[in-house]
Amino acid sequence: MAETHKEQLANLRQKIENVKFGMLTTVNPDQTLSSRPMTAQQIDAQGQMWFFTSDKNAFTKDLSRQPEVNITFSNPDDSLYVSVSGRATLVHNRDKAEELWNPMAGAWFPGGLDDPDLALINLDIVTAEYWDSSSSKMTQLFAIAKGILTGQRPTDVGEHVEMKL
């Protein structure tokens, strides 16, 4: 039975809740890709991911021209890798900023919620996928070694799930 939209969002939220930073990739004016670390503040019930940012960052100006972005999260110690794609918008919304505000955000915005550079990125999630292995490292290494010896791809090293949100 396929997961519902709500279940998919809950699963995605659970996967990345303990991964502190993701790498947000945007398209530059010259069509090259550029990435920077970001901290996801929330994935809401509508499938929106929220980030604090400065509206003085050069990449935020490019979002209106090229809103398609990707953010990846990884926790190699747990063999977890997550990729989220969607459309990003730069937002100035005091109420949402208040809802998401935390001490870590305060480190980047010394003026607090009144900081003139404070903005939010709203990422409307379109697709997400993850690779997750609950197998022990030894089991994963054994499966890879077996693949090398048999000439066949390793199996049972984890799950790969694609979500269309």
Rank of each mutant, 00 (worst) to 15 (best):
Lys15Tyr: 00
Lys15Gln: 04
Ile16Val: 05
Val19Ile: 14
Lys20Asp: 12
Gly22Lys: 04
Gly22Pro: 05
Met23Ala: 05
Leu24Gly: 11
Leu24Trp: 08
Thr25Ser: 13
Thr26Arg: 03
Val27Met: 03
Val27Gln: 02
Val27Pro: 01
Asn28Asp: 09
Asn28Trp: 07
Asp30Pro: 00
Gln31Pro: 00
Gln31Phe: 05
Ser34Glu: 12
Ser34Pro: 05
Pro37Ala: 02
Pro37Ile: 00
Pro37Glu: 00
Pro37Phe: 00
Met38Cys: 02
Met38Pro: 01
Gln42Thr: 09
Asp44Met: 10
Asp44His: 11
Gln46Lys: 08
Gly47His: 05
Met49His: 06
Met49Cys: 06
Trp50Arg: 09
Ser54Pro: 03
Asp55Ser: 07
Asp55His: 12
Lys56Ser: 08
Asn57Tyr: 02
Asn57Cys: 01
Asn57Phe: 01
Ala58Pro: 02
Phe59Ala: 01
Lys61Trp: 10
Lys61Gly: 14
Lys61Cys: 10
Asp62Leu: 02
Leu63Gly: 03
Gln66Ser: 08
Pro67Ala: 12
Glu68Arg: 05
Val69Ala: 14
Ile71Tyr: 15
Asn75Gln: 13
Asp77Ile: 07
Ser79Ile: 10
Leu80Trp: 06
Tyr81Phe: 15
Tyr81Asp: 14
Val82Glu: 13
Ser83His: 13
Val84Ser: 09
Ser85Ala: 14
Ser85Thr: 14
Gly86Cys: 10
Arg87Asn: 10
Leu90Asn: 09
Val91Lys: 07
His92Ser: 12
Asn93Leu: 03
Asn93Ile: 04
Arg94Pro: 03
Asp95Phe: 04
Asp95Glu: 09
Lys96Arg: 13
Leu100Arg: 10
Asn102Asp: 15
Pro103Thr: 15
Pro103Phe: 15
Met104Cys: 11
Gly106Met: 13
Pro110Trp: 10
Gly111Trp: 05
Leu113Gln: 08
Leu113Cys: 07
Asp115Phe: 06
Pro116Gln: 12
Ala119Cys: 11
Ile121Gly: 07
Asp124Gln: 08
Asp124Phe: 04
Asp124Tyr: 02
Asp124His: 05
Asp124Ile: 03
Val126Ile: 06
Thr127Arg: 14
Ala128Gly: 12
Glu129Ala: 14
Tyr130Leu: 11
Trp131Ser: 12
Ser134Thr: 15
Ser136Gln: 01
Ser136Glu: 06
Ser136Asp: 05
Met138Asp: 12
Met138Gly: 10
Thr139Phe: 03
Ala143Tyr: 03
Ala145Val: 10
Lys146His: 07
